[in-house]
């Protein structure tokens, strides 16, 4: 992996009010790969994920030190519009959160507001996104039905399709399968494998088997620090740090 990183975290310290949530984090994410962030609850992995597309901006009393470099630019520079950052770096959440609109409108929502007005073009975006998310065959005849009528697994794939519709470079996934049954989870994992051809995926997960199955590299976080970051196989077969080993073998966490 000598490739140029697509996004780099440089010496990041992050505080919620007085709580030091991330301690001097530095890591690079390679393009067209899946990176898993693992660690016990409260270790800072979701915080880091939400820093990457400036979702933490929504919270009051936060403070960030350090830089997050995307395309050679610190996304926290004063001149950077977080809205533009989020167009390029999409996100899928823990609980499927489709809008209370039709399946079609869930997908077309963001492209439409970003200036795609031609209905043929929108149709094409909707179909392509749903196909990429392997949902098209299940919903192509019910595009005008409310997204709320879909099953949890279908809803989550719809949310992935919704993120894909903006053609982002990076997709952040925050425990995307923790609310889903094993079959839906397997489908999402297959999908992640498929998507990394075109996208960079960074996934936070509590499920260590999942990290082992889907990711190329894994970072282990503990108490706000990045303890170990390496190729997934190495992390799970011969971790270099005792804490990592303890965690992945289930001795704590």
């Amino acid at each position: 992996m000598n490739e140029q990183p697509i996004i780099s975290v440089r010496n990041v310290n992050f505080y919620y009010d007085s709580f030091h949530a991330l301690k001097d984090i530095s890591l690079d994410f390679a393009p067209n790969s899946v990176t898993a962030l693992i660690g016990p609850s409260g270790c800072g992995k979701s915080t880091l994920l939400r820093l990457l597309n400036r979702m933490n901006d929504l919270i009051d009393k936060i403070r960030l030190e350090g830089e997050i470099i995307f395309e050679g630019k610190n996304i926290y520079d004063p001149g950077v519009d977080p809205v533009e950052v989020r167009k390029r770096i999409g996100m899928v959440f823990q609980k499927p959160n489709p809008f209370p609109k039709t399946i079609y409108k869930n997908i077309s929502y963001a492209p439409k507001l970003s200036g795609v007005n031609n209905s043929d073009e929108l149709d094409a975006v909707v179909e392509q996104s749903l196909r990429q998310a392997v949902l098209w065959d299940e919903v192509k005849d019910i595009l005008n039905r409310s997204a709320m009528t879909l099953s949890g697994g279908q809803q989550q794939r719809l949310c992935i399709a919704r993120a894909l519709a903006m053609k982002p470079d990076i997709i952040l996934m925050d425990e995307p399968t923790s609310a889903l049954d094993p079959i839906s989870t397997a489908k999402i994992e297959e999908l992640i494998d498929e998507l990394k051809k075109d996208y960079t995926i960074i996934i936070v997960t509590h499920n260590m088997q999942q990290a082992a199955r889907v990711s190329d590299k894994t970072g282990f976080f503990y108490l706000g620090s990045l303890i170990e970051y390496d190729v997934t196989k190495k992390i799970f077969t011969m971790p270099q740090v005792k804490q990592t080993e303890d965690y992945i073998t289930g001795r704590f966490g």
Partner: peptide
């Protein structure tokens, strides 16, 4: 629900558009 706002903002939609298109209709 806050999740609706997050979903919209995460798509690169501005806060005002999120309020107009998601929050107010709901």
């Amino acid at each position: 629900p806050q999740t609706f706002r997050e979903a919209s903002l995460a798509l690169g939609i501005s806060k005002w558009q999120t309020i107009q298109k998601i929050v107010l209709p709901v």
